[in-house]
């Protein structure tokens, strides 16, 4: 039973996350995780789930996590690309779950490019 407008707002905020993935806004930050065979073999599934989890934990609501196909850097899988709207994409290599979380915290949240993990093509 909802007894007040505050309780209604609590429910709204609790489930807001669920719908956030369904908003197709073009000016969101996109985090792309390479999930081709090589990526999956190198542990990209753990990486993507860690990233999704971290985005959730940090309450970041202007970013979407999307998986993508092979980017051709099989030696450096798993790969993660961070795209800020209107900026050059940044590609990271050998991103395990822990690095994934750190990319979310430092790059996505605070805008700091972690240059030592950046892949140079």
């Amino acid at each position: 039973m909802i007894k007040s407008i505050e309780e209604l707002k609590q429910i709204r905020d609790k489930y807001k996350d669920v719908l956030q993935n369904r908003e197709a806004e073009e000016n969101k930050i996109r985090i792309l995780v390479g999930m081709a065979t090589c990526g999956i073999a190198a542990g990209a599934r753990d990486t993507i789930n860690a990233i999704v989890d971290e985005v959730h934990k940090e309450n970041i609501n202007n970013a979407v996590v999307v998986q993508t196909g092979c980017m051709g850097f099989c030696y450096a899988e798993p790969t993660v690309e961070v795209r800020f709207p209107g900026k050059t994409p940044v590609l990271y290599g050998k991103v395990d779950a822990e690095r994934g979380r750190e990319i979310v915290r430092r790059h996505v949240k605070n805008g700091e490019v972690i240059s030592e993990w950046v892949l140079k093509g």
């Binding site: 407008i5 209604l8 707002k9 429910i11 709204r12 609790k14 489930y15 807001k16 669920v18 719908l19």
Partner: peptide, 15 residues
């Protein structure tokens, strides 16, 4: 109903 509430459902009624 939670998904409706999450998209500002019943907020107009509340207001």
């Amino acid at each position: 109903i939670n998904e409706y509430i999450a998209s500002d459902g019943y907020m107009a009624l509340a207001r």
